[in-house]
Simulated scan of single mutants.
Amino acid sequence: MTVIPTDGFVHEQRTLRVLFREGALDDLAAETDRLGLTRVMVIAGPRHAARVTELLGPRQVAVVRDARMHVPLEQAEAVRARCAEAGADGIVAVGGGSATGLAKAVALTLRIPIVAVPTTYAGSEMTRVWGLTENGVKRTGRDPVVAPRTVLYDPALFASLPAELAIPSAFNALAHAVEALYAPDRTPMTDVVAAEAAGRIVRGLSRPALDTQARTQLLYGAWLCGTSLDATTMSLHHKLCHVLGGSFGLAHAPTHTVVLPYALAHNEQAAPEAAAVVAGALDDAGAADGPGPGERLRRFAQSAGAPRSLRELGLAREDLGTAARLALSSPYANPAPLDEDSVRALLERAWTGIPAQPEGTL
C-alpha cells in the first residue's frame, strides 16, 4: 500500500492528449489539424519518413531524417534555423529518444508544439525534460514548452523493432520508474504509477520472444515510466547515464541497461520501499533470483540478452575516474550519500559486469 507522507506533498500534473491503439499513426494528420498546425517540420528516421510524408501531405514543409544521439548542439541549431526558415508552426517527431530529443531542442527556442509518435520505449515523449550536448558535456533542463502536446502510441510500429534494440530500450524505460520511486519529490500518485510501470516492463520482458502481447505491455509500461519521470526529479542513475552518453559517446539505452542494477544496488539500503517495489515486480514475473533487487535486476537483464558491462559498450577503464568526477560536478538529490570514491567504485563494478551489490558487500 502506498504510504502518504506525514509532512504532505505537492503533485503537479500537466494536460496532454494520448492516443494508444493499433493504427494510431493513421490519426497523425487529424491530430496536427486538431492543434491548428498547417506547416509542420518532420523529424523521422528512414523507416518511417515516407509514411509520415504521405499522411501529412501539404502540411509537411521540411523533414530531418538523421537525428543524432544525445542531441548535439550543432545539429539542434541547424534544425532550428531550417524550421524557422520554413515557417513551421509545429513539429512531428516519429522515432526514438533521439528524434524526440531533437524536436524538444527546437521547441525550446522556437516555442512551437510537438506531436510525438514513439517507436522505442524511451519515454522522452512524456516529459518536460530536454537535453543538449556541447563540447562533450550533456546538460539537461525542464521546460513545459518542450513537452509534446499529443502522443500517439501505436503498437503496430514495434513489430519490426529488433529484440537487440527493444530490450535495452525497455530497461531504459524501467530506469525512469525506479528513480521515480526514490525521488525526493515523489508523491503517492507517482508511487502508484511508477510501481505499475515497473511491473508492466518486467512482465513484458519476461514473455518469450517479445511477442505482440509483450510489446504492447512494454509500450504501455513505457508510457507510465515516462509519466513517472515527468513528475519527479532525476538522481544518480540518470546523471551517470547522461555523463557516459554525452561525454563518452556511449549508446543511450544500453548504458541505462548496464548502469541501472548498480545504481539500484547503491541506493537499495537507503531506499527500501523502492527496492521492495522492484523486488515485487521481479517476483510477480517469476524473474531471476538473487541476494538483492539490484543483483536480481542484473541477472534478469542478462537472461533477457541485454548488454552486461560498460566495457562491452566501449568505455575505456581509464575514463572511469573522469566519469565519476563529472557525475558529481553539479549537486542533485540521491537517497544514499555520494562521493567520488563510491561513484568510481560503482562505475568500476558496472565496467567489469560483476554482481550488483551494495557498497561494502562481498
Rank of each mutant, 00 (worst) to 15 (best):
A265W: 04
G294I: 04
T257V: 13
P272G: 12
V278P: 06
A275S: 14
V278Y: 04
G280P: 05
L264Q: 07
A276E: 14
G245A: 03
S247H: 01
G292V: 09
P272H: 08
G280N: 04
A275L: 08
Y262A: 06
L250Q: 02
G245I: 02
A287C: 06
Q302G: 15
E268A: 13
L264Y: 10
G290K: 08
G246L: 03
E268L: 15
L244Q: 00
D289R: 12
E268K: 13
V259G: 00
G280A: 07
G280Q: 04
E268P: 12
A274C: 10
E268H: 12
V259A: 03
F248V: 00
A276R: 15
D283F: 05
P293G: 12
P291H: 11
A285Y: 04
P261N: 04
G305K: 09
T257Q: 07
L260H: 04
P261Y: 01
N267K: 02
P291Q: 08
E273R: 15
L264P: 06
H252K: 03
H252S: 09
H252D: 01
F248A: 00
F300W: 10
D283L: 09
Q269W: 06
D284G: 07
H266D: 09
L250W: 00
P272Y: 08
A287W: 00
E295M: 11
V258W: 11
N267A: 15
D283P: 03
A304C: 15
V278R: 06
A301F: 14
F300Q: 00
G305E: 07
